[in-house]
């Protein structure tokens, strides 16, 4: 009985979305908004080679701010929700190969993450992706050395300072530029070079630091509630 009900819901949902697939014809040219962003005069106004970054950090920068605050809320709720465990958490000792590899890989992964978020305006990547890579480096260390304590205070300070700098730079755009999150508060530089797109690389670097610190904090919280009883 219950299976039939589930099947009915699935079939109904399938029928509901089938016209969307069926009537989809594909686009032959850019829609109006995308076309506006791709016009040469608008590209040079932001001067970021990666147009997705231009949209994320400047045109729709307010959405990014909201996104960052959602991540912050998630981290805050998880920290509030998961009480620290006092009991001891017994873990099997890691193999020599794993711990050595983790030690070698950790700095390389951090450097890769920093590279990804600093070049967000030139290559695929950006703050969120770089932050996720940094957090994956942290989880590698958490798995390799479970008994080493993590300085959560440092992580939260890093996160708060990055968030304040992000909002501050955005407000600076409103004060001396044309509007909130305007990237022209710094010289725009040469198109396609590392020093270009004004404040975009700086904003994205701080977003990357913030996301990396936040995700690491969430992972540390998850690890700290584990216990044997």
């Amino acid at each position: 009985m219950k299976n039939i009900f589930t099947l009915m819901i699935l079939v109904a949902f399938g029928i509901m979305i089938y016209p969307l697939v069926n009537s989809f014809k594909g686009n032959d040219k850019l829609p109006e908004l995308g076309n506006y962003y791709a016009q040469p005069e608008n590209v040079t106004k932001v001067n970021s080679a990666n147009l997705v970054t231009a949209v994320v950090v400047t045109y729709r920068g307010l959405d990014t701010l909201g996104e960052v605050s959602i991540l912050f809320l998630t981290a805050a709720i998880i920290a509030f929700f998961l009480k620290k465990q006092t009991g001891k958490h017994e873990v099997r000792e890691n193999s020599e190969i794993f711990t050595t590899a983790a030690k070698v890989l950790f700095p390389l992964m951090i450097i890769l993450g920093v590279y990804i978020f600093m070049n967000g305006h030139l290559t695929p990547g950006g703050g969120f992706q770089g932050g996720a890579v940094i957090a994956s480096a942290v989880i590698l260390m958490l798995l390799a050395f479970p008994e080493v304590p993590v300085n959560q205070k440092l992580l939260s300070y890093m996160e708060s300072i990055s968030g304040i700098v992000f909002v501050g730079l955005a407000a600076l755009g409103a004060l001396i530029g044309f509007g909130y999150l305007d990237n022209a508060i710094l010289p725009l530089g040469t198109f396609g070079k590392f020093l270009s797109a004004g404040a975009v690389p700086i904003i994205y670097s701080f977003v990357g630091l913030k996301v990396g610190a936040e995700l690491s904090n969430i992972l540390v919280e998850f690890k700290s509630v584990q216990s044997n009883e």
Binding site: L30, N35, Q39, L51, V52, R60
Partner: peptide, 10 residues
């Protein structure tokens, strides 16, 4: 020729 060759970034 960006407007002719790229997909929608939004």
């Amino acid at each position: 020729d960006a407007a002719q060759r790229i997909v929608d970034p939004v």
